[in-house]
């Protein structure tokens, strides 16, 4: 794409982000983050629809980054683990290790019905159980899949912004 076309696109694009809804209350214990939350996203075995919604939440329209949440490439950098999908047999151990590798204080958000209680895959042969079987879940975002706005609101409870 040429320089000029890109410049024109940027000029016409303007602000894509939607106006911010009112802030939810701060999650108790998340004061320590002070408006900066690094998120490690884990797909423990979902069908990718929650994953799409999560990526929409971090996209320009919902723009959860404006509230101070950011995706990071390593759990060592993370404050919040954003887990989607019910935990499959092959992901159980990596999930445990990822939780182990995350420095405290940390919080866990389970996104989608599958992550919360197994959802449609609950009794599947490859499923070990919902996320709460492995780690204490701090915030649950129900829905199959949930709206990006709900994911945004859950993360805003962590950032407090």
């Amino acid at each position: 794409m040429s320089f000029l076309r890109l410049a024109t696109l940027i000029r016409h694009g303007g602000r894509i982000a939607e106006p911010a809804p009112t802030a939810p209350p701060l999650f108790p214990g998340a004061e320590v983050f002070g408006g900066s939350v690094q998120v490690r996203y884990i797909n423990a075995g979902g069908c990718n629809d929650c994953a799409l919604e999560v990526s929409a939440a971090f996209g320009p329209v919902y723009d959860v980054e404006r509230y101070g949440a950011r995706l990071v490439p390593s759990p060592r950098h993370a404050d919040v683990l954003l887990i989607v999908g019910s935990v499959t047999r092959n992901m159980a151990e990596p999930l445990r290790r990822t939780i182990e590798a995350t420095p405290t204080p940390r919080f866990v958000i389970a996104v989608g019905d599958c992550a919360i209680h197994g959802g449609a895959f609950r009794d599947g042969y490859g499923i070990v159980g919902p996320v709460s079987d492995f780690v204490h879940v701090d915030i649950e975002v129900p829905g199959s899949p949930p709206e990006p706005t709900e994911i945004v609101q859950a993360l805003r409870r962590m950032t407090g912004r």
């Binding site: 390593s74 759990p75 060592r76 151990e93 990596p94 999930l95 290790r97 990822t98 182990e100 590798a101 420095p103 405290t104």
Partner: peptide, 13 residues
């Protein structure tokens, strides 16, 4: 600080 037994390698064992 807290010590864990494995370096971060993508969660794999």
């Amino acid at each position: 600080h807290r010590t864990v037994d494995l370096p971060w390698g993508g969660g794999g064992s």
